[in-house]
């Protein structure tokens, strides 16, 4: 085996990633209605409803929840919605379906790491959602300048974005893992829906984690969803500092390592079990 083999394999994976990205982009835009509903509108309605809920709760000007007054809460909800859109979600992968119905079989005879194709989906998701969010922020800050969140500093914005990207990768790995369970289980979509609900709560999409009881908030700070949505939101608004950012990076990297190892293990075990059902 030559010493250049790993680097050429990496170069091949990167080239394939580029093509897979373009392929996924074509797939996601193949249906205009599907694109508008799934890609543009996803994750927008819940925070919009929560704005009205908080309007009722924080009716007086001095009312606070965990240090958030109403304008800060609105800014936080806009940030949470934007960050949640960037996070990879359960409907982004149809791997479980492919395993159940035997379509994944075809990839097993190809000279390709299946994960690279899935990564193409992840890259497409980030690209599309970043564009959507950029458009949303441009329109939103023009129409609602008094409510739209402003970054405490340029570095706070960069740090927040970095945490969201790492968090999104964690979410992608969790989606992949839940899908791979289809090698063993028939209840993957139920598990996926449950995971999504837990994720929304732990990420602080509806209620900022810092506004939750301290014991619960302390526990959630060890989980990656908090560092993917709630913490970046507070970093952006200047409610958390660089020290917290560093902690967030460490927690997220630890999660990525653990999830990557689990993914590799489950994928290999799953393939050994695979019978290509129905194919």
């Amino acid at each position: 085996m030559s010493a250049t083999a790993p680097s050429s394999a990496l170069a091949r994976d990167l080239r394939l990633l580029g093509v897979a990205f373009a392929f996924e982009l074509r797939k996601v835009t193949a249906w205009r209605a599907g694109f508008v509903v799934r890609e543009l509108m996803r994750s927008l309605w819940r925070p919009l409803v929560m704005i009205f809920v908080y309007r009722a709760i924080l009716a007086t000007s001095d009312a606070r929840i965990g240090g958030f007054d109403f304008p800060t809460m609105v800014a936080y909800l806009i940030l949470a919605a934007s960050f949640e859109k960037l996070l990879f979600h359960q409907r982004g992968l149809d791997l479980a379906d492919q395993i159940f119905q035997g379509y994944v079989t075809k990839y097993l005879t190809m000279p390709v790491r299946f994960f690279v194709l899935a990564l193409g989906r992840f890259a497409q998701h980030l690209a599309v959602q970043s564009s959507v969010i950029a458009g949303l922020w441009a329109v939103g800050s023009l129409l609602f300048p008094q409510w739209w969140p402003r970054a405490a500093s340029a570095s706070a914005a960069v740090e927040a974005f970095a945490l969201v990207l790492l968090g999104s990768y964690c979410a992608f790995l969790v989606c992949f893992l839940v899908n791979v369970l289809a090698f063993w289980l028939e209840v993957v979509w139920t598990l996926s829906a449950m995971a999504s609900f837990v994720f929304s709560f732990a990420a602080g999409v509806l209620v900022p984690v810092s506004a939750m009881p301290e014991s619960l908030a302390g526990a959630l700070r060890w989980l990656f969803p908090y560092w993917a949505v709630s913490a970046p939101g507070e970093l952006f608004l200047g409610r958390l500092g660089t020290q917290e950012f560093v902690r967030g990076v460490c927690v997220l990297l630890s999660w990525i390592v653990a999830l990557e190892l689990t993914r590799e293990f489950l994928w290999r075990r799953g393939l050994h079990r695979h019978v290509g059902a129905g194919a």
């Binding site: 080239r15 093509v19 897979a20 392929f23 797939k27 119905q101 079989t105 075809k106 194919a279």
Partner: peptide, 29 residues
Amino acid sequence: LSMVMGQRSQLWWDLPAIDSFRLLREIYS
């Protein structure tokens, strides 16, 4: 090697076949 499953499409349903062929071109270099 190559495999065709008569009841399992290798190509993507919503796209023209040429798009799937381009992906295959990259996969097989």
